[in-house]
Amino acid sequence: MADKPAIGIEIRKLYKIFGPNAAEMVARVENGMTKTELNEKHGHVLGLRDINISMPAGGIQVIMGLSGSGKSTLIRHINRLIDPTSGEVVVGGEDVVKMNPDQLREFRRHQTAMVFQKFALLPHRNVLENTVYGLEVQGVDRASQVKSATMWLERVGLKGFEKKYPNQLSGGMQQRVGLARALANDAPILLMDEAFSALDPLIRVDMQTILLDLQKDIRKTIVFITHDLDEALRLGDRIAILRDGNMVQQGTGQDIVMNPADGYIQSFVEHVNRGKVIRVSTVMKQGGAGEGLASIASDALLDDAARQLIASNATHLQVTDAAGRPVGTVDMAAITRGIFPAGGGQI
């Protein structure tokens, strides 16, 4: 399936300003003018300011932020649906910003695929015809189009719905078509702009599970946008947080929950269930491996550790690394401190 090796995305010094004289405004923004000032004094909208981010190949990079923070603008720079005002977007060693229209079209056809918040299916085409769209545009022969589309529709659980039209499906099913359409493209990069935001909470969790299961096989570089922290923590190998066009923090979910960079992020992470984010390795006591104790992997979540500790009826658990070697121990007090930090917002 994922024949092509995953490729990373490198964004450097990216600025986006909306307005007629965007290029002239970059210097002002570089000198620290805020979004509000720029809008009031010069009538330009600051989309993104000095974004630098490196998205590793084969991982899920989540981009988070409130409405209007520039998430959609950022993700659209990766396949250049939006042209930057300045900066570089290097994908697999090539700068997307410098591509000519033909190169860009080829790039979009073969290197990227996208899933949209409002699904953006073709209403006059049935599910199968929607799913083959990317391959059709590439000029792949019809038999391979249908074969690939049928396979992906089955993977997302839509076998038997090939002949239905989008308006005959529920939102969750429509988005599965959107996902199958993107995956059928067999591109190493998958861009998902609030792909699950329009769905009911339960269906949303379903879709997250489908995506995580698929990712075990496909190992694509996924850029996933959301304004929901739980979704971000569940999916993201790495998370970047935007605010008013600025990148305010990057790191793993655990980094962000443990060390929020400022009050804005603090307010985001306040109500998160830390037991489902923080891993045993963060709170364990190094060394002093206890013989005969039940063991737990160092990358297990605190919730699971607590459960196991209760089940094993002991005071400590032995923590083991990926190779199974003992690296430390953990007890209920440490776990509890991890879940309920001193001075934290939890009740």
Binding site: R105, R108, L122
Partner: peptide, 24 residues
Amino acid sequence: DVLEAADAFGSSSWQKLKNVQMPL
């Protein structure tokens, strides 16, 4: 939104006209 999707999949302007704009 649908046009943007067609763009994102690398449609040429003829493909967009034929597959998206004219049918819709």
